[in-house]
Each structure stands twice: as structure tokens, then as C-alpha cells.
């Protein structure tokens, strides 16, 4: 197992390195624009010169890598937050994203699994049909459509929540204050619909499969009640693929949803990405790209490894 994990991590690092290299080259060859402010432009030009932006591409990459390994320096934000290090910029945006997604994760996991279990147990009855139809709707409808719906219903018509997430100063200077929590709720609700629907569908599919297995029949013949058989045998086995999925969702929390952040003005990583493109702030863009790539790769590898931990029968690649 250890060997397998190490092998996977090394492979992931290799993939990550290649992606980073390609992205760096593609981003660095883009033409840079100077701000209209003459003084600022002169300062920036001098800095670029000093940072080696005019050197050949490979030398630039060398400087970039050296900066990361020696000073943990991922470049500088030129426009989004002027002259701050890209690392600090992204770290500052991380907490709002994580909070919104964490709240929606906490809401959606129990509801999603619960609904999935109900649908599987009551298969082909009205409960199942209702749940399955709703799931089909919510899986298909694009996330921004129900983001708008939530905004319209809860924020505009009923006036329960503010239209967008409060600014840090309004919320008393803390991301964890009750005002902030309350203003994040519409984004959390909008995000939860899709997650709940996805999880419900997955749970239902897995559980219906285990419910028809032979060991369930055996459990019933041995005298277990239906509820006992389901909770002790079927659910446990159905969890084998469900748990890795939940874990990967948990990691994707970091990535967040760009659309939701844009609609509800959550000052998070996704919004930063859009800002960095619009302002042509390439170092921040590169930082964000690295971040998203890493989150995606991590989610994938954790799923594979957790399969092995949860179910000893599946140890992919192990002899």
C-alpha cells in the first residue's frame, strides 16, 4: 500500500510539474500591458527588468522555480492588489471560498445521502419517483439559474438575506461573524442544490445495486430485520464508492464555484481568477492556475488511494 501511495504521489507531482511548465510558458509569452500612470509604469518596467522578465523563456522559468523553492515567491500581483505577492493575494481569498463551500458541504452531505437512501429503499414507489425527478431537474439545470432563483426568492421577494455577500468591514471584520454567515447563506443554498442532487443520485444507484445482492438475501434468511440488514450490510457496502466521492468533494471545497462567487460577489478564489484575467494580471492568474490544478489532481489521487483504504479488496496497481 505504501509503495502504491508513493508511486501515485510521485506520478501526480510529475503531472503537476509538466502542467505548470506548459502553463508558465503559455502565460509568459503573452504581451504585458503597462498602466497608464506614467510613474507606476516606470516602476513596473524597472521591476520587470530586475525580475528577469526580458530574459529568454527558459531562464525566466528557472528564476520562477528558484523563487518558489527558495523564498516561496510565486510572483507579484501587478494590478489586482498592486505590488503584493501573489501568494498573499490568493491566501487572502481562500477563507471566503472555503467557508461558503464548507457550509454547503455540511448541509448537502447528510441530506444527499438521506434522500438517496430513501429513494433506494422505496424504489419504484412514489417517494422514489418524486426524488428521482427532482434530482434529474437539479442535476440538469445550470447552477446559475438556481442561483438567480435563490436570489430572487430569498433575497428579493422575501428579503431574508442580503443580495450579495457582505463586505468584511460590514460584517465586523471577521469572516466568521453571524452577519457574514447570514449573508453567505444564499450562495450556500444555491451551491447545495447541485451537490445534494449529485449525491442523491449516486447513493441511490449504489444502494439499489447492493440491495439486490445475494448477501442481503442471506442476511434476511438468517433472521435480520430489513432495517438491520440495510444498515449493517447494504449501507456499509454502498459506502465503498460513496465515501471517496465525499472525500473528493471535500477537497474540491478549496476550488469553489466561480459562477456562484461571481453572482453573489463572494471575494474568493474564483472571483480572483476572473479579476486576474480581466485585468491581465498574469502572475496572479498563474498562481490561480497552479492552485486549481493542484486541487484537481489532489482530489483525483485521494479518491484512488481512499478506495484502497476503505475496501482492502481494491488496491489498484498493487501486485
Amino acid at each position: 500500500m505504501t509503495k502504491y501511495v508513493i508511486k501515485r504521489i510521485l506520478l501526480m507531482l510529475f503531472t503537476f510539474f509538466v502542467i505548470m511548465t506548459i502553463c508558465f510558458m503559455l502565460v509568459r509569452i503573452l504581451p504585458r500591458t503597462l498602466p497608464t500612470d506614467k510613474k507606476l509604469a516606470a516602476i513596473m518596467e524597472a521591476r520587470w527588468e530586475a525580475l528577469g522578465y526580458n530574459e529568454p523563456l527558459l531562464v525566466q522559468y528557472g528564476i520562477y522555480l528558484k523563487g518558489i523553492f527558495t523564498d516561496w515567491d510565486f510572483g507579484t500581483s501587478w494590478y489586482v492588489q498592486q505590488m503584493e505577492s501573489a501568494w498573499d493575494v490568493i491566501v487572502g481569498r481562500l477563507l471566503p471560498t472555503v467557508l461558503v463551500n464548507l457550509y454547503s458541504f455540511i448541509i448537502s452531505v447528510p441530506i444527499g445521502i438521506g434522500l438517496g437512501v430513501v429513494a433506494a429503499i422505496k424504489k419504484n414507489k412514489w417517494q422514489d419517483h418524486t426524488i428521482s425527478t427532482l434530482v434529474m431537474l437539479f442535476v440538469s439545470i445550470p447552477v446559475y439559474v438556481y442561483a438567480f432563483l435563490v436570489q430572487y426568492l430569498f433575497c428579493y421577494l422575501l428579503g431574508w438575506f442580503p443580495l450579495t455577500v457582505s463586505s468584511l468591514t460590514d460584517a465586523g471584520g471577521s469572516w466568521l461573524s453571524p452577519t457574514m454567515f447570514w449573508s453567505m447563506m444564499p450562495a450556500v443554498i444555491a451551491l447545495s442544490f447541485g451537490q445534494i442532487a449529485g449525491l442523491t443520485r449516486f447513493t441511490r444507484a449504489e444502494l439499489t445495486e447492493t440491495l439486490t445482492s445475494d448477501y442481503m438475501l442471506l442476511a434476511r434468511t438468517k433472521g435480520l430485520k430489513k432495517s438491520q440488514a440495510i444498515s449493517r450490510h447494504a449501507l456499509k457496502n454502498a459506502m465503498v464508492p460513496i465515501l471517496p466521492m465525499i472525500i473528493s468533494t471535500f477537497i474540491s471545497i478549496l476550488g469553489g464555484s466561480m459562477v456562484i462567487e461571481q453572482i453573489f460577489s463572494v471575494p474568493g478564489v474564483g472571483q480572483l481568477y476572473i479579476q486576474s484575467i480581466n485585468m491581465r494580471d498574469y502572475d496572479v492568474f498563474m498562481m490561480d492556475t497552479i492552485f486549481y490544478t493542484l486541487v484537481g489532481l489532489l482530489a483525483g489521487i485521494v479518491v484512488d488511494i481512499s478506495y484502497g483504504f476503505i475496501d482492502p479488496r481494491i488496491r489498484m496497481g498493487e501486485k
Binding site: L11, T289, Y292, T293, L297
Partner: peptide, 15 residues
């Protein structure tokens, strides 16, 4: 294929 799949789609689209 692994390497290509590792690049987030949104980054590819933007670039």
C-alpha cells in the same frame, strides 16, 4: 492523456 486531463478546463479555455 493524464497530463492533459490534469489541466483544469477553465484554464485551457482561458488560455
Amino acid at each position: 492523456a493524464d497530463i492533459l486531463a490534469g489541466v483544469p478546463f477553465i484554464v485551457v479555455a482561458t488560455l
